[in-house]
Write a protein that binds this DNA or RNA. Structure first.
Lengths: 238, 238
DNA sequence: ACAAAAGTGTTTTCCTTACACCCATGA
DNA sequence: TCATGGGTGTAAGGAAAACACTTTTGT
C-alpha cells in the first residue's frame, strides 16, 4: 500500500463573495458579478472570487477581492458556507485526481450609492438584479441561492438592513427593502412601522424628504449605540 | 516576478467534528474527544478529525471519521464553520510558507445510548462533559465553542433536541436537556410543557415510566411526519 | 379637489408569564 | 403521610394582525 499521505487530496482554496446591494430608486436587490477571463468558464459571469495566497487568511482574501472590485465606505462581511465536493471545478480532471478546488464563500452587504465599481477596462463587472442573473460559472448559482437564503434569514432577526440602506432613509424605504426581499405579505406597513420604532434604535433626524406625490417622510438613522444595548435580547424585525 | 501560481497557498483540508450527546442519567452535555497519536500535539485530546482524501467530498470525510469512531443508529450532521487562518497548524512553518492546513468543521448530534464508541485499543476516545473538557490540540477549543453556540441557537428554533434524546422520552427529560444547555431560567416548566405539546408533533405513547419518587411520566415520541407539515412555519421552542 | 404616500390609533385575538393547584407514586 | 416530580388551569399583561382614519404633499 502506498504511504497514507499520497491518498490525501491537494487543495487550492478559493474565496467567492456573494455581494448584495439594493437600488432604492428601482427597488431591486442586486448582486455583484464579474466576467471571467481565465481558463475555465472564460467569458461567463461569476461571483467575484480569488484563490487564497500564501500567508493570507480566508477573510483577508475575501477583503482583497472586495477591494479590487469596489470602493466602499461601509461593509458587512461574514462567512457563508464551504463548498468542497470533488467535480465542482473542471480543473480537477475527474479521473486523474489532481488538485481539488474548494470554495469558501462569504456573504457581503454594501450600500449601492457608496459602492463604486472598479472597472479596469479589461474585466467586466456589474450589478445584476436578482431576477436577471445570467448563467454562472462553476456552482456559483448554488452559492448565490445559499447567500440569498442567508439574506432573508438575517433580515428577520438582525439589523443587516441598515448596512444596505443609505445612512439616512425613510421608513418607507425600509419597508420596501423588506417587501422586495421577503415578499409582499410579510407584514402590514403600519404594524411594521410601530414595531420597528418601538425597538428604539431608529432616530428621527428631523429632516423631511418628499418623493413625488404624498406627504413628505422623515429621514431616520440607525443608531448603533442604542442597538448595542439591546443586542443580546431577542428581537424580531419580521 | 515569479509566476502568479507560486504565490498561491497549497492546502490540505481537514474535517473536524464537534459531536454532541447528552447523558440523560447524569444530565450532562457531552462532547466526543479523541487522543491524538500523530506528530503535532501527540498525546493531547482533540476533536475527531481527518484529512480529506482524493475524490472524497467534505461531508463524506465527516461521515468517515464518524463511522470510524462510533457506531450509531441515528445522526444529525451539518457543516459548522471553516477555520483557515495561517498559523492554526504548526505543521505550516511560519516562515517557509509550505502547506496550509484548513479545517472545515461539522456539527453532529447522536444519542448517547445508541452511540457505541469504537475503541481500537490504540487510540484514546471518550465522551467528555462540557464542564470538564481538557486542553485541546490546535484551535479546537475555539471550534468547540462555536459548536456549542450553534447547539444553543438550534435548540431555540429547530427540533434538534430529538436527535439527542432517546427515541422515547418524558417531557421532564426534554425540559432537563433544555435547562442544562440553555440555563435554568429559560422558561417555566409548565409553560414549556404546554408550548411544546401545542406544537403538535409530540405523540404520547401511552407508556408510563417511573423514576424514583414522584408521579410516573408519559413517554413521548417525536413525530417527524407531523413536524414536516409545519416545518416552514416559524416555530419557537424557546 | 383628488390621489398618493406618511403617520396615528383602535380593536380583537392570541401568546407569554407567572403562578396556584391537583395527581400519582416511593419511601 | 409526606416529599417528589408529573400534569392541569387560570388570570394579567403584552405583542401581533387587521383595519379605520388623519395628515400633508404633488398635480
Amino acid at each position: 500500500m502506498t504511504p497514507k499521505s499520497t491518498n490525501l487530496a491537494n487543495f487550492k482554496v478559493g474565496v467567492d463573495n456573494v455581494i448584495f446591494s439594493v437600488d432604492m430608486a428601482q427597488n431591486r436587490v442586486l448582486v455583484l458579478l464579474v466576467m471571467r477571463q481565465g481558463d475555465p468558464f472564460s467569458g461567463q459571469w461569476s461571483l467575484p472570487g480569488t484563490l487564497v495566497r500564501q500567508g493570507e487568511s480566508l477573510e483577508a482574501a475575501a477583503y482583497r477581492i472586495l477591494a479590487e472590485k469596489i470602493r466602499f465606505k461601509n461593509i458587512y462581511l461574514e462567512q457563508l458556507y464551504t463548498f468542497g465536493g470533488p467535480d465542482r471545478d473542471p480543473r480537477e480532471s475527474p479521473d486523474c485526481f489532481g488538485v481539488r478546488y474548494l470554495s469558501v464563500s462569504y456573504f457581503a452587504l454594501v450600500r449601492f450609492e457608496e459602492a463604486q465599481l472598479i472597472a479596469d477596462g479589461v474585466t467586466g463587472i456589474a450589478w445584476y438584479p436578482l431576477e436577471r442573473v445570467p448563467e454562472l460559472a462553476f456552482d456559483h448559482h448554488q452559492i448565490l441561492e445559499y447567500g440569498y437564503q442567508r439574506l432573508r434569514n438575517k433580515l428577520e432577526y438582525s439589523p443587516v438592513a441598515f448596512d444596505v440602506l443609505p445612512e439616512t432613509f425613510t421608513l418607507g424605504d425600509l419597508y420596501q427593502l423588506y417587501t422586495s426581499v421577503l415578499g409582499e405579505n410579510f407584514s402590514d406597513y403600519s404594524n411594521f412601522r410601530t414595531r420597528l420604532l418601538k425597538l428604539g434604535f431608529l432616530s428621527d433626524t428631523g429632516v423631511k424628504v418628499s418623493r413625488g406625490a404624498g406627504r413628505p417622510a422623515s429621514l431616520y438613522r440607525f443608531n448603533s449605540e442604542s442597538f448595542a444595548l439591546l443586542k443580546d435580547k431577542p428581537m424580531v424585525f419580521i
